[in-house]
């Protein structure tokens, strides 16, 4: 019950954050076309991938079925594939479960944040995201991925790995009539500010979506737990009744045989 209402709220937050990111993508893809002379390092540049970074979004608490373990399994297979090709891997953990996972798993962890609660705020994520973006700018990592759960419906959550940087989002077709913005102060700083915010908003969305997934998974897990407990109670009741009946039968037969002996 609690998880159900929390899930609905998380879903609301999920849809509330969407217009911002959509609008930003529009502006960014427009800017990418309008100012071809300036390519920001976050935009798709062919650069050899020697190291990758993962921002892993998990829940803070357990008891939500296989939500986190499915995510980590997906991530582990991805990491193995990278290690096979000799690519270096770095991480950034969001949520206690991811943190605990990396403590066991090992690996280079650049940043972490836990205990975001049910209402995550974007300012809590800024530092964590910046650590990764700085590493990207310093060419310590060549691509950033975000690992989180996708909310399909209440029963289904799917672990997904999406590329954050370089931005691979659908760049719209070249605009038919060319026009450009007036920039204040200049195209470069506007684009810089936009791209950082865009990445942050994507991470924020992933965190919110993951929290909706967590609540949904917990709801289902708790439901099946109480169903299982119900079954168990039924079985035990049957055993109890049988034992009771056997004891009564035995007592009766003892009395009857005693009486007939007299």
């Amino acid at each position: 019950m609690v998880a159900a209402s929390k899930m609905r709220k998380a879903q609301d937050r999920m849809s509330a954050s969407r217009p911002y990111a959509e609008k930003m993508l529009q502006v960014i893809s427009h800017l990418a076309h309008a100012t071809p002379e300036y390519r920001h390092s976050f935009m798709a540049i062919e650069r050899e991938v020697k190291a990758v970074g993962y921002i892993v979004v998990s829940s803070d608490r357990g008891l939500c079925g296989g939500l986190n373990s499915n995510l980590f399994r997906r991530l582990t297979s991805e990491i193995k594939a990278h290690q096979a090709t000799g690519t270096d891997v770095a991480f950034c953990a969001i949520g206690s479960k991811a943190l605990a996972f990396f403590k066991r798993f090992g690996g280079r962890m650049l940043g972490q944040i836990t205990h975001l609660g049910d209402k995550p705020h974007i300012e809590e994520l800024i530092g964590t995201v910046k650590v990764m973006l700085d590493a990207y700018e310093a060419k310590k990592i060549d691509a950033i991925y975000i690992v989180s759960n996708e909310f399909v419906n209440t029963m289904t959550q799917r672990p997904v790995i999406r590329q954050l940087v370089p931005i691979s989002g659908e760049v719209h077709d070249a605009l038919p009539n060319h026009w450009d913005y007036i920039y204040e102060p200049d195209a470069r700083s506007v684009l810089d500010a936009l791209l950082t915010r865009y990445v942050e908003s994507l991470v924020y969305q992933a965190v919110v979506e993951n929290s909706a997934c967590e609540q949904a998974a917990r709801m289902v897990a708790m439901k099946s737990a109480s169903d299982n407990a119900g079954n168990l109670i039924g079985e035990l009741q049957l055993v109890y009744n049988k034992a009771r009946q056997a004891a009564i039968t035995q007592e009766l037969s003892e009395i009857v045989s005693g009486a007939s002996a007299v």
């Binding site: 403590k103 650049l110 972490q112 836990t114 800024i126 530092g127 964590t128 910046k130």
Partner: peptide
């Protein structure tokens, strides 16, 4: 401010790894 937040995130990661 952003810089401070980034440093904070890094410090947390190091703390956590150090147990």
């Amino acid at each position: 401010l952003d810089e401070a937040a980034a440093l904070e995130a890094k410090r947390r990661a190091e703390d956590a790894l150090a147990g």
